[in-house]
Write a protein that binds this DNA or RNA. Structure first.
Length: 194
DNA sequence: AGCACGATTAACT
DNA sequence: GTTAATCGTGCTC
């Protein structure tokens, strides 16, 4: 059986390349031997202590420590008192950066996702960073998880390549009090119609 | 010890 | 379009 998981070398690159490269790949969560998965269609890059939108702007803290670690690990954090958000750690060890996965297109485990998303229309199961975490049961217990380990319950599989013509970039979402120029950096990547 | 706010979501006017 | 929900985190006193 060929291993289709993205290797650590994929994540050990400039964060913008990883964010772009993750579009079209398959995010897989295995629970009790059951696969839940979706194609990644939206990402955002957060790059280093100088990026004032990145949590690492405050330096190394217990919360941000994982971003300073080796690439290919999950950075899962809790926000707004109720939501989990999932990121992939990028770049070299010691440089804090990550890619936030903002949306996926559900393809495996649809019945379970529907249940977790409380009967809402499929269009809204995983069209937000906290929604996909709820659908795939990604929470703090997966913070620091090695996405490249052979037995990982959370990883990224190789998907179909996405042409540049179907990718758009825009400023990142939800950075209400972040100063320029960081607020307007076009570091959000979205897959449109092919 | 206290406080302001957040890489959001869902419901509501 | 607006706003409540809800609490960990980092900053100030």
């Amino acid at each position: 059986m060929v291993d289709h998981r993205l290797p650590r070398s994929f994540f050990a690159r400039p964060t913008l390349l990883v964010a772009r490269g993750l579009l079209g790949q398959r995010l897989v969560r295995i629970e009790n031997g059951v696969r839940l998965a979706g194609i990644i269609v939206e990402t955002e890059a957060y790059i280093g202590e100088s990026d004032l939108a990145c949590h690492a702007k405050a330096g190394r803290t217990p919360r941000t420590a994982i971003m300073y670690g080796p690439p290919g690990h999950a950075y899962v954090y809790f926000t707004y008192g109720m939501h989990w958000l999932f990121n992939c750690v990028t770049e070299r060890e010691g440089f804090p950066a990550a890619v936030l996965v903002r949306a996926i297109r559900p393809v495996e485990g649809l019945a379970i996702m529907a249940q977790r998303r409380n009967g809402r229309p499929q269009r809204h199961w995983t069209d937000g960073p906290a929604k996909l975490c709820q659908a795939l049961d990604i929470n703090g217990s997966l913070n620091g998880q090695d996405l490249c380990a052979p037995d990982s319950p959370l990883f990224i599989e190789v998907g179909d390549p996405l042409p540049d013509s179907s990718v758009t970039t825009t400023p990142r979402v939800g950075l209400n009090t972040v100063p320029e120029p960081w607020k307007s950096k076009p570091w959000r990547f979205k897959a449109g119609a092919v």
